[in-house]
Every structure is written in structure tokens, then in C-alpha cells.
Nucleic acid binder design. Structure first.
Lengths: 182, 182
DNA sequence: TAATAATGACCGGTTGGTCGGTCATTATTA
DNA sequence: TAATAATGACCGACCAACCGGTCATTATTA
């Protein structure tokens, strides 16, 4: 992750990965068939780490509006905490968003997005059911929330001075919750 | 643009660019010092095209809330109309968001973001002045709107079936405008 | 000792960039 | 006008560097 984050997928050298890991280059190939394979494994690992983090943050919370607020707060936390993580995401997007043929990365990225959307939508739907939220199309709203978070991390990584993360989180969180109020 | 969009910056071959342009490979180097230089020129060209498009769409509109609505509508139009354009953006982000040292692309990307933010913020501020909007931090709001649009195009490019662009535009537009209402 | 794991020198395909040369067009000369 | 010279846009074969992946060899473990 360190090497891919620093250099980007294409510039990253297997030898650098090996060095970072304190092993020889050949040893990398004992565990991964190819560079692509390594990248794919990294993607899978990172997504599961991310999911674990959110699960932990949201554990035991039941109230939908609090869940959403905490989810957003957790997302903003990850920006700072897992910066290299998101730098690698640049490449997932670049590789996964392109091309006609279905590469494995494309499928994985799509599935991950779909899963996130439905997770967030489930929170919104729960809120609608118990009267805390009003929302006609929870899936659209979920897409839009996730998109905003992606876009924010993108903008922030390109220019750390662009905005203050805490102010942004507060404003964003309030805006979202207000827009869902009945 | 076609070649970079199809292949991504690193996979794109100068020879393919030449072929697409109907010229020889050597000729490319009569006009551009290097691959990086070509990419940089493309970035500049694309940004100015985009800006022209928005200027045209917003010409003669004065009312802030209408301006914002039209801006959002225009942004969604570009998703469909200029798909290759945004595929190249993947690489701008990936190249521009990475690394400590200040590459030219990084500076350009930052400046472009800053300009967009202040353009959108200006619309919001105008709306606040004439009482159409209520907004404490127009720059934060502008950042957030731009981020959402970036994130949406990202998500849509990774999965065209993720959501219907028209429904999304309508919902998004309404949400934004509602959140700015006094 | 036998099996397994680790290693890094090496190979070969790829590609950014170069350079000597061509040729259509324009300018100059006779 | 016709012959000659100058121009520079265009070209693609070639080169050198780079790096993903291999494999014969060495180290470690059981």
C-alpha cells in the first residue's frame, strides 16, 4: 500500500514493494502471481479493512439519524487516518473505470459501490420507517452521499489547504441530516 | 484525448496518439517536447473547453438560484456528452493528487479547483446578498457541491447502471437548492 | 538429508524519445 | 517562365532504459 500510494500503480516497482516489505523480489512472486494479482489482493484487503472500521464505529448504534451522522464522521476520520489508502484509490478508479471489457477490478469496484450504496440506503430507509427521515429515493440519496465523500477526499488530497476537514464535516453532516428531515 | 481516455496515461502510446491523429510518431515531437508535455497541454485545453461550455450555458442568467440550477444541469450534461473527457480526468487526479514535490500538473489542478470553488461560491454569495439563499460559508458549500459532482461522475463511470442520471440530477438539484433556502 | 522457502542476477518485451533523411511547397535566380 | 535553391513539416527505423517475471542457486527448516 505504501509503495502504490507513493508512486501510483504503474510507476510502482515490484522491487520497491519487496524492499519495503524487507524481502527479496523473487519472494513476492511466491505469494502473488503477478503485479495485477498483488494489486487486486490489496484492493480486497483495503475494502475489508474499511468495512471493519465502519462496522466498529457503528456497532450498537440503532437510531438512523445518529448512524448517519456517525458514518459521515467516520468517513471524514478515514481521510486523515488513512491517507495512503485513498491515494491508492486513485488507481482503483483509474483502472476500474476504464475499458469495455470486464476486468476483475472493474467488477470488484462496481460490487463494492453497490454494497456501500445499499448499506447507506438501508440506514435511510430505516429512518423513513420510524419517521425520523423523509426521503423518496433512498438509493439515490445514498449514491449522492457516497459521491460527495469520494469527491471531498479527492479534492482534499489534491489540495490539503482547500478546506478545513472539521468545518467541512460539520457543515456537510448538518446539510445531509437537514435535507432528510420530514 | 481519445487515446488517453481509452488507455489511461501510462498505457497510452505516443504511436497510438500519432495514429489517431493521422500523423507519424516523430511529428508528435515536433509539437510537444514529451509525453508529459502533451498531457499537460491536453489538461489545459480540456479545462478551457469546460469553462467555455459553462460560460455559454450561464450567459445572460442573473438570478442566483437559476444560475445554480443551470450550472448543475450543465454539469450533468457534460457527464454524458463528454465521457472521454472525464475518463482522462481519472489520470489528472491520479497524477495530480500524488507526491510531495510540486509538479506542474499538481499546481494546475489545484488552481483549477480553487477557481471553480470561487466561481460557485460567488453565485451563492450573490444569492445570499439578494435574500434568495441563506448560507454561512459559501466556499465550503461550493467545495461540497463540486465534490458531489466529481464523485457522481466517478461513480457513474465505474457503473453506468448505478443510477439514472436524470433522476439523480433532479434530486440533487432540489436538495442543493432546498438546503440553501432561507 | 530432504523439503521448503528465499533470493537476486538475468532475460526479453516494451516504449519514450532521437535523428538522419524525404518531399511538397515556396522563394530566388537566370 | 523555367530552373534551381531553400525551407521545414513529416516520417519511422532505431536506441537505450526500464521493469515484470523467471529460475538456478543458496539458506532455512523439520
Amino acid at each position: 500500500m505504501q509503495v502504490f500510494a507513493r508512486e501510483g500503480y504503474h510507476r510502482a516497482k515490484i522491487e520497491a514493494v519487496a524492499e519495503e516489505a524487507g524481502i527479496g523480489k523473487g519472494t513476492v512472486y511466491e505469494y502473488f502471481r503477478s503485479k495485477t494479482d498483488l494489486f487486486l489482493a490489496l484492493h480486497e484487503h483495503m475494502l475489508s479493512e474499511l468495512k471493519n472500521f465502519y462496522m466498529k464505529e457503528l456497532a450498537e448504534i440503532r437510531e438512523p439519524s445518529l448512524m448517519l451522522e456517525r458514518f459521515i464522521a467516520a468517513a471524514f476520520q478515514t481521510f486523515r487516518l488513512w491517507e495512503p489508502f485513498f491515494l491508492v484509490f486513485f488507481d482503483f478508479w483509474a483502472e476500474g473505470g476504464r475499458g469495455e471489457q470486464q476486468t476483475l477490478l472493474q467488477t470488484r469496484l462496481r460490487d463494492a459501490y453497490a454494497a456501500s450504496r445499499s448499506d447507506v440506503a438501508a440506514i435511510i430507509t430505516a429512518g423513513v420507517k420510524d419517521g425520523a427521515f423523509r426521503c423518496e429515493y433512498p438509493l439515490l440519496a445514498a449514491s449522492s452521499i457516497l459521491a460527495s465523500l469520494d469527491g471531498l477526499v479527492l479534492q482534499w488530497l489534491c489540495d490539503r489547504e482547500a478546506f478545513d476537514l472539521d468545518s467541512m464535516r460539520e457543515m456537510f453532516s448538518q446539510t445531509i441530516l437537514r435535507s432528510l428531515r420530514p
